[in-house]
Every structure is written in structure tokens, then in C-alpha cells.
């Protein structure tokens, strides 16, 4: 399979922060690739390097076989970029924005209508509305349409689902899967671990370094420690108590529960008894399968 993106030992300083430290990865053509990491991990810097907006301090980046420093002009007509922040013209209407971005790429809406049809059809009823007056989900669809209107071979989406409701997020990922069928390479970043499993492959990134690259399934499977999910009345106090325990390796809060790993095979009943004696009430403890987030926490910890 041909390589669409190749990032080779890239480092980049942003002010006093080393945003990226010796990053290596490559994306295959037609792949849906996820960059997963928390805020400040270096995801946006990576996108700005891929879109030729930044020049790497060290290493090389190629997109579609073109070097981002030497052949940046060739890259600019081949990539579609959707920045993390909504950055279309708020005082132009939906249709005008789309027309404008089509014309700066020397094309027309009609020419590539097939590609954007499914997405654009959803916002077409509002095509005379100013972009600034759209809801979050519609803005995101418009931005995606604008990024696709020139039929790019590589689509770069920086946190496209941040600030979008769960239904729209789900729809958005469905759209990405459809685009994948058109053989468009897609790189998407997200801070949401639950979205990671929608990708073909993911790179876990933290503090400017890649922790692991694999398929979402392999990453979850690689987690070989036994994992217990603990629920209780006072989660915060519970977490502090558990972390004090000698046999406990890690304990992280996951919304309404805690995920706990042990340095030796855990005795679930004994563990529960120990906690009850410490005055914790309403305890339910269940062994669970590890998810990507568990792997991420473990890798970030090491």
C-alpha cells in the first residue's frame, strides 16, 4: 500500500515549549488515521506542519510524496484542512463560503458536487444564512464541505468534533467513513478516546512524543493487566483511599467509576472488604475489559 504521509524524526519548538520531539509515523493511502492525545500533546502543531503552515526544526514531512518545505505549493492544492477553530468567513453566507473556497482552488461547486453532496445536502436548506449564525454542528459540516470542495487527496481534520453534540459527532464519523471509500486519506485528531476506535490506526501522543501506533483493537488488547471497575458513594475519597493501598498499581477516574489495576492478581472480595472497613459505602466492583483510554493512561504513565 502506498504511503500518503510520511513524518520522519520531526522536532518543532514553539516558543519555549518543545511541541514535538522526534516524531515518526506514516499514513497509508486511503487510511483513516487518528492522532489521539490530550490538549497540549502537540496535535495541532503536527497539523500545522502537515499543512505547510509550520516548518519543522528537524526532520522531514512529506504529504502525497511532496516535501512540506520545498514543495509546499504542490501540497496546498492537494490537502483539505479543517482547523480546530471554526475559520470560515462568518459574514458570508453558507453558499458564498463554499463558492469562495471552490474558486480559490480554481474549481466550482458543481465539479465536485458528488463528493460533498451527502454533507452539503444537510446544510443546503440554510445556504442563504450567514456562516456566523449557524449552530455548532452545521458549522462543522460547512467547514468539512469547504475543505472537500476541491477534491483533496489528503484530508486533515484538527479536532473536528470538539464542541459538537454526541449525535452530530456520531454522524460526523459516519461521513468520514464514507469519504474513506472515495480513497481519500484522512488524518483526524481528537481528545476523545471513544472516537479512537472509529479509526483504522491510531497514534497515541503525549508531551510531543508518540507513545504507540497500532490499530485501536491491538492497543486495547495489549493491556494485559487485570482491570477492576469500582463504583462508590464518594468517588474522590474512594480514589484517594485506593491509591494509598500497597497492592494497587494505578487508579484513574473514568466519569462515574474508577479503573484500578494491581501489581499482583487481585482478590476482588478481599479488596471490597478492605474498602468497606475503611468506611466506603455503596461499593460495586466488576472486572472489565480494557479500553483505549486505559491503555493510554498506562502508556502515558510509563
Amino acid at each position: 500500500m502506498a504511503t500518503a504521509i510520511n513524518v520522519n524524526n520531526v522536532s518543532k519548538r514553539q516558543g519555549n515549549v518543545e511541541a514535538l520531539k522526534g516524531v515518526n509515523f506514516s499514513v497509508n493511502r486511503g487510511e483513516l488515521y487518528g492522532l489521539i492525545g490530550p490538549d497540549g500533546a502537540g496535535k495541532t502543531t503536527m497539523f500545522r506542519l502537515l499543512t505547510t503552515l509550520l516548518v519543522p526544526d528537524e526532520g522531514t514531512v512529506t504529504v502525497d510524496g511532496f516535501d512540506t518545505v520545498k514543495d509546499y505549493e504542490a501540497i496546498r492544492s492537494r490537502v483539505g484542512y479543517m482547523p480546530g477553530r471554526f475559520s470560515l468567513y462568518q459574514d458570508l453566507t453558507v453558499e458564498e463560503n463554499l463558492k469562495f473556497f471552490a474558486s480559490v482552488f480554481s474549481t466550482t461547486i458543481e465539479e465536485n458536487y458528488d463528493l460533498i453532496k451527502d454533507i452539503y445536502a444537510q446544510i443546503e436548506p440554510f445556504k442563504h444564512r450567514r456562516a456566523g449564525k449557524l449552530s455548532g454542528g452545521m458549522k462543522q459540516k460547512l467547514a468539512l464541505s469547504c475543505a472537500l470542495v476541491h477534491k483533496p487527496s489528503v484530508l486533515l481534520l484538527d479536532e473536528p468534533t470538539t464542541g459538537v453534540d454526541p449525535v452530530s459527532r456520531y454522524e460526523f464519523w459516519q461521513m468520514l467513513h464514507k469519504l474513506k471509500e472515495e480513497n481519500i486519506t484522512i488524518v483526524v485528531s481528537t481528545p476523545y478516546m471513544d472516537e479512537a476506535k472509529m479509526c483504522d490506526r491510531i497514534a497515541l501522543i503525549n508531551h510531543g512524543q508518540i507513545l504507540k501506533i497500532s490499530t485501536p483493537k491491538d492497543i486495547a488488547d495489549d493491556f494485559n493487566d487485570a482491570l477492576l471497575e469500582v463504583k462508590g458513594e464518594n468517588l474522590y475519597k474512594l480514589m484517594l483511599e485506593i491509591r494509598k493501598m500497597r497492592t494497587v498499581k494505578s487508579c484513574y477516574s473514568f466519569g462515574d467509576s474508577l479503573h484500578v489495576t494491581f501489581s499482583e492478581t487481585p482478590d476482588t472480595e478481599g479488596f471490597k472488604k478492605e474498602l468497606s472497613e475503611l468506611g466506603q459505602g455503596g461499593l460495586t466492583i466488576t472486572p472489565i475489559e480494557a479500553g483505549i483510554e486505559d491503555s493510554y493512561m498506562k502508556l502515558a504513565d510509563e
Binding site: 496546498r76 471554526f86 475559520s87 470560515l88 473556497f101 482552488f105
Partner: peptide
């Protein structure tokens, strides 16, 4: 400030 320049900068303009 609005960020639109970033979108323009990645076009062939």
C-alpha cells in the same frame, strides 16, 4: 484573530 487567515494560507492563494 478570527483564524480565517489560516484557512486562506493553506490554499494556493
Amino acid at each position: 484573530e478570527i483564524g480565517t487567515i489560516e484557512q486562506i494560507n493553506v490554499t494556493p492563494v
